[in-house]
Design a binder for these strands. Sequence first.
DNA 1: TCGCCCATGTAACCGGTTACATGATTTG
DNA 2: CAAATCATGTAACCGGTTACATGGGCGA
Lengths: 192, 192
Amino acid sequence: MIALPKESTSYYVILGIMSLGANSGYDIKKKIEAEIGYFYKVSNGQIYPTLKKMVNDHSANFVTEKNDGRPDRKIYSITEKGLGILKEWLALPIDLQVDNENELLLKLYFGSIEPIQNNIALVKSFREIKEHNLRTYNKIAETFNLNSIKQIPEYYSFFTLRFGQLVAKAYIDWSHEIIKVLQDLDEKNKSL
Amino acid sequence: MIALPKESTSYYVILGIMSLGANSGYDIKKKIEAEIGYFYKVSNGQIYPTLKKMVNDHSANFVTEKNDGRPDRKIYSITEKGLGILKEWLALPIDLQVDNENELLLKLYFGSIEPIQNNIALVKSFREIKEHNLRTYNKIAETFNLNSIKQIPEYYSFFTLRFGQLVAKAYIDWSHEIIKVLQDLDEKNKSL
DNA sequence: TCGCCCATGTAACCGGTTACATGATTTG
DNA sequence: CAAATCATGTAACCGGTTACATGGGCGA
């Protein structure tokens, strides 16, 4: 068992990007922006120190590439140890708490290096949590009836609850769709 | 113009809760948990120092309430100055960046103390941003065709993109619904 | 020539979490 | 009788952002 860096998502994201190919710090940032930028960001102040840490860690190493005029490029590669850490993180269950959609998306995205069944399980557990949340919201919503609301603040409670309902529903629909695609993909792979 | 505390959401959330009534630190935390807990959290290590700061600020003040056996309860109230700061924050446009759904929900929830037209504008600008995002995702999605995908990693890009699409759609649907309710509410208020 | 891109990196700051301390009271 | 609740608070820590420094190359 490898000790995991406590909670630093960026550490795992950078490992994840490196697992798809060697890159310079600069290019890792570009890749993150291009590919998962709409739900995950990193800053320079995060990326360069993290890369240094990884080299100390032996979860990554680098070779220097000459670059005429411009600063040398350091091309980082994930090591076996780094891959182990990444896979351990991928296997960690996602907290049942709120706001972990990004963690799910990251783990799914980088999970492409894992067996399909793992990813199906990941999305399924996400779906179950969201189904549970939705049932809770629905129960609360039963106490609301737009026509019977008397005070302004009650409307506003309803608005945020309604948000929770619709978004949870979207999560669940997405889960169903993705699970189906993953299952088809798994079938197709087996029959080859 | 009052200088706004730079970025500390909890500061505004606590002001927001106080704008709905005086409370102890303990009760403010409970209220946050009960009413917006599914999308916003605060810890003790955040709430008590912030309340102290607010008293220094003159955005809040407190009276001490005897509480036999247990520690005295400090009942905090928002001041005129605090209300000004809260309203300034409510009026601040939400960053066009990602992950600001919570800020929207908070501003809408606490916006119940503001004119309805303000809140309609708030939700409308949110909707426009999400419509813009959705158009972007749709454009990218055109380049995906599940049947033509050759490599595994491409599927996983599709999954995260699809997530963005469905969630953006949910945001937009919610916006339409909420705007309608707010407009009806506005009509009803005018006719009284 | 102005400003963006490439490419590295650092220092100061800060919002927020975790975990602890205290201790009476209520609840199962 | 143990565990949770009430009620306050603090100290250490940390992930992450902002803003800066450096400086050549390149396109409008």
